[in-house]
Design a protein around this nucleic acid. Structure first.
Length: 804
DNA sequence: ACGCCTCGAGTTCT
DNA sequence: CTCGAGGCGT
């Protein structure tokens, strides 16, 4: 068969591109293309050369195994070439995509059995299964047990002499130990870097203003190939041995697993993550096991390696050793976690708070086994920084194992004529203006500096359909009013058909109106009406949270409700009063006040109350302190101490605001301070405002006291005052249920582990919070231990909540 | 003014 | 889960 001109051109193009990437990668430590993509190009070229052998030229990248040596190192010829292992991938029949799933193991095993001419009746083949480390392969030569030479793989035949650098690696013994040490031993293994060391290195590099390293693999590969061994030493590299090249003066073990044991017995580090397995089932279960352990290994592993265990069978399979890869071994890679794809469009979404969020619509790709077609781009700055444009090819990764993230643009593939992305100047949904909210930064400098928020916001409020929808979704959500069956799709329809614009409308929906909607029968309609009805029995704090007031989440809603007890107080509360609520400052008080001052919102809330969304009202549990109120006014020269003096002298606001300068001076013992107070009070509106605040506090039945606010309630329970953190899944106990239980026992549940945490409750498959707990020496509890503590404390925990 | 804790808010897919 | 920023103690 003759190569067509098209094939020849394609091969040439592939060669050029592969050369470019591999030079960037190996020579300059730069990452210009995701690994999976590089593999794909490489395999395409291999396939072409296999089909048309006359295209295979000697200078083709497929003829080389590693990168080109950097100048500056002596070259070393390997006694036994350092080959590489072939990658196996399962290809779905009829699909071009490589699915690197466990089925690849089936083909590998079948291949071996066929070459060995085994039939179904023969015994399964024995393999060793090991980790495929993601670092740099090197060879260590020991003569009479002493390390004499270390070399990189290089092109497989010759590599670079990195002996000095290898000596800085603590894992690498300078002298072998144990009995029966070979006269000559050429150890093969991988230099790698632990994640923790990688982070440490980058943190200190950042502090020094030096360049940071891209990833642990490049750090290891670059680190071992530094001309200055002290640079190499700074990277705290590690080493694992996984095989040998040549050896003299010993009896080589008869299978691979014994060989690894022997290496370990010489004092060489050999990973304990290895197994002797039998047949294809064994291969697959090892693959699955490591895929699961991967996040906890502490270093990068990009797959597993299978080797026929018996060295005799290896040799038998190796008769035709002219090939680049041995037949008796294979690398089974994990699903790629970084993949490239095209940005088909950049759209802008509008969230509940009006925030405009750009989202990349991607050509669907499989990342980590899941199809991804959207990725958030967060905000304008983010897009600018990465310069992501419509039409670009980008590298996508699943960050934190879940949420897709655009890592970088592959600039080489940018088509001509792309334009920088521009955020719209009006809301894409309702056309209202969009603004960047300006935040005042209270700085002591002369000009109170102003800082813009990073996000653009639509000012349309609930008049904007996007925000109205999001507000309803939030209102109905599980943690808010928990209206079962009212999901996003349904809310879309309700808003689009004008049946509901705000939460209050939900409570007047008729079953007959609902059953006319898409995918709604009479039964589901009446179920929905029922769950809307049920939601009236949730709780006041859920309602406050459900309203979606900026800066008021679940916890803050609880704090506010604890303080005021009843809805009408919350509605009327002035910001000066709201700040008496623990954990509520100006930035929370202002939005709350603004929310309830808005006529439209007020109307919605009134309608909700009329519909019966209301609760048994209970007394107030905070004390307002007059001194604190004065201190918070931020009057110049008046700090906590003088506020105290004013409070104890005047006792009430009415008397303070009418005080003359001489009385103030006498009280404070300072004329300038007194003047400052009187100037503040005479500012327009201040006097009236203070009187209003006082009137309100009296209305609410708050006690005026100069004592600091006191804790009102000392609840019983086994976990009083304890802070707990949950991690992992607690079988048969949902997170929410666990949280409720802990709170009922007087404890608190927070999201992250800190020195203040008392216990970490560890479930199955825990996250890194477990690690943090161990590092900080915090006590951990199993689910059962938690239950025992909570239940052991008995009944008093159950009844405490209703002292109001 | 600074730093430590937490909370709020946004986000994807099954 | 992660990031940013509010609350609060020092």
């Amino acid at each position: 068969m003759t190569a067509s001109r098209a094939a020849a051109e394609r091969a040439e193009a592939l060669r050029k591109e592969i050369e470019r990437h591999s030079s960037a990668y190996y020579v300059h430590d730069q990452h210009t293309i995701p690994d999976a993509e590089y593999d794909r190009l490489f395999r395409e070229l291999e396939a072409l050369e296999e089909e048309y052998p006359e295209l295979a030229s000697l200078d083709s990248p497929t003829q080389r195994v590693g990168g080109k040596p950097l100048s500056g190192f002596a070259t070393i010829r390997h006694d036994v070439p350092m080959g590489s292992i072939r990658n196996i991938a399962y290809v779905e029949p009829g699909s071009k995509a490589n699915l690197y799933d466990e089925r690849a193991a089936i083909q590998f095993d079948a291949d071996i059995r066929k070459k060995l001419k085994l039939t179904d009746r023969d015994l399964p083949v024995e393999y060793t299964a090991e980790l495929k480390f993601d670092g740099l392969a090197i060879s260590l030569r020991y003569e009479q047990g002493v390390l004499v030479r270390a070399a990189t793989r290089g092109d497989g035949m010759t590599g670079e002499d990195v002996t000095l650098n290898a000596r800085t690696i603590r894992d690498i013994p300078l002298r072998l130990v144990g009995r029966n040490i070979p006269f000559v031993l050429d150890v093969r293994g991988e230099v790698y870097m632990l994640w923790a060391d990688f982070e440490k290195y980058n943190t200190s590099a950042r502090l020094r203003g030096e360049d940071t390293l891209m990833n642990p693999r490049n750090a290891a590969a670059g680190g071992i190939r530094q001309l200055d061994p002290s640079i190499s030493a700074r990277r705290s590299l590690r080493f694992f041995a996984y095989g040998i090249g040549s050896s003299q003066g010993w009896v080589v073990p008869s299978n691979h697993s014994d060989l690894l044991d022997a290496l370990a017995s010489f004092g060489l580090p050999v990973s304990s993550c290895r197994k002797v397995v039998v047949g294809v089932k064994g291969l697959m279960s090892f693959y699955r096991e490591i895929a699961g352990k991967r996040p906890t290994l502490g270093f990068d592993v990009d797959g597993v390696v299978y080797k026929v265990n018996s060295l005799a069978i290896q040799t038998a399979l190796d008769v035709d050793n002219t090939k680049k890869h041995p037949d008796w071994a294979a690398a089974h890679k994990f699903l790629p976690q970084e993949v490239s794809t095209k940005v088909e469009d950049i759209e802008v979404q509008v969230g509940r708070t009006g925030a405009l969020t750009p989202v990349a619509r991607l050509a669907p790709v499989i990342v980590g086994g899941v199809e991804v077609s959207n990725a958030t781009l967060h905000n304008e700055d983010q897009i600018r920084r990465k310069d992501i444009r419509k039409g670009d090819t980008v590298i996508v990764r699943r960050a934190g194992d879940v949420i897709p993230e655009v890592v970088a643009v592959v600039l080489d593939r940018r088509p001509p004529g792309t334009k920088q992305f521009q955020m719209p100047s009006t809301c894409p949904i309702c056309g209202s203006k969009v603004i960047k909210v300006v935040k005042e930064q209270r700085l002591k400098t002369k000009e109170s500096r102003q800082k813009e928020e990073a996000v653009l916001r639509c000012i349309g409020g609930l008049a904007c359909p996007a925000q109205a929808k999001e507000a309803l979704i939030h209102f109905a959500s599980r943690r808010a009013m928990d209206i079962d069956g009212l999901g996003e799709k349904l809310i879309d329809q309700l808003v689009d058909q004008g049946l509901a614009k705000n939460p209050a409308d939900l409570y007047s929906l008729k079953g007959s109106e609902l059953s006319r909607l898409d995918r709604m029968g009479e039964i589901s309609a009446s179920n929905l009406v029922k769950s809307i009805e049920t939601s009236k029995n949730s709780s006041l704090s859920r309602l406050i949270f459900a309203l979606g007031i900026p800066n008021v989440g679940e916890e803050t809603a609880k704090d506010i409700v604890k303080a005021f007890g009843r809805l009408d107080f919350i509605i009327d509360a002035r910001p000066e009063v709201l700040v008496f609520v623990p954990n509520v400052g100006k930035d929370t008080a202002t939005p709350v006040y603004a929310f309830f001052s808005d006529g439209h919102n007020r109307q919605v809330v009134d309608r909700l109350r009329q519909a019966g969304v209301n609760w048994v009202e209970s007394p107030i549990t905070i004390r307002a302190s007059f001194a604190e109120l004065i201190a918070r006014l931020d009057i110049k020269k008046i700090g906590a101490k003088r506020a105290e003096q004013l409070a104890s002298h005047f006792q009430t606001i009415s008397r303070l605001v009418d005080a003359d300068l001489s009385e103030l001076t006498r009280t404070l013992d300072s004329e300038t301070a007194a003047r400052s107070v009187s100037e503040h009070i005479s500012e327009i509106g201040v006097r009236q405002r203070l009187l209003d605040v006082e009137a309100q506090l009296i209305d609410f039945g708050m006690h005026w006291t100069n004592q600091p606010a006191t804790a009102v309630r000392a609840p019983g329970g086994a976990l009083v005052g304890k802070t707990l953190v949950l991690t992992g899944t607690l079988s048969s106990l949902s997170r929410d249920a666990a949280k409720q239980m802990i709170e009922a026992a007087g404890g608190r549940v927070t999201g992250s582990v800190s020195p203040k945490t008392d216990y970490v409750v560890v479930g199955d498959d825990p996250g890194q919070k477990y690690q943090e707990a161990l590092e900080l020496g915090i006590r951990t509890l199993s689910k059962d231990e938690l239950l025992r503590i909570v239940e052991g404390a008995g009944q008093q925990t159950l009844s405490f909540d209703d002292e109001h």
